[in-house]
Amino acid sequence: MEEKIKSLDNKYLKNHWQLYVMLIVPLIHLIIFKYLPMVGTMVAFKDYNIFQGIWKSDWIGFTHFKEAFASKEFWIAIKNTLILNLGDLLIGFPIPIILAIFLNELNGEKVKKTSQVIMYLPHFLSWVIIAGIVQQVFSNNGLINQLLIKLGGKSVPFLSNPGIWRMVYWITGIWQSAGYGLIIYLAALTSIDPSLYEAAYIDGAGRFRRIWYITLPQLRPTISIMLIMNLGKIMSISFDRPYLLGNVLVKDTANVISTHVYTLGLQSGRFDFATAIGLFQSVIGVILILIVNQLAQKFGEEGIL
């Protein structure tokens, strides 16, 4: 029996060796561009010397981590990362769900289609372009302030007041990504059997009861997956958005872990120290994803892993 399987395997290999040939280049790519940098994170535990390189530099244990934990800027970067991400979660997360629920109630196909297409558009603009647009719209003599002044109000320092800048950051995030979320949730709603709504209608359920008892339960798996991913990423933040939306005047608010690592590493040349901070963030990120995934499975949701 075993021999038979073995001969079958050999036969498979004989006929399909080309499959392994195909995998050679992707695997080399994987090793060089994904796994070598992972090995390179050991710089975080070394006293990195450019001339000696990663391998020959001296091990110094957790020195960089200790220095990071003792530095004020590190904690500010963590605090800013958490605040900006929590805001995205609290304000940005529910909006596409609400939009999808109400767009699903709409009968007019034209309005339905057009609003999806237009709201989805900003998702494909780069953060450089978005930052340029934000400047035109929110700067001291930008669109909104001109409007406020015309209406007899005072101009608001949207981009230079740290607290208000955060609002701009969140609002921009909604503008950029709500359309994307909307399409994901609408896709989940297309599979609802219309007879469910009809039955509920005949039983006398009002619009909001139908939303509550039919639409929302249908969205639940998608909502929970999106929530898991968002919670798992609460400590990680992209580089482009905070870096490009930020400016010198709000740097204490806009400086997050990714931009902090960039400034320390690539601008001040402290490669080892910056790697330690980046590694700390990545490890926390992995732990968070594992925890959130476990929790989700405990509550009977599917999870992502």
Binding site: P37, V261, L266, S282, V286
Partner: peptide
């Protein structure tokens, strides 16, 4: 799920 971070990627590109 595991991102080695900006600097190790940079050092890798540099050593290549």
């Amino acid at each position: 799920y595991f991102d080695p971070g900006i600097i190790p990627k940079y050092l890798n590109i540099k050593s290549l």
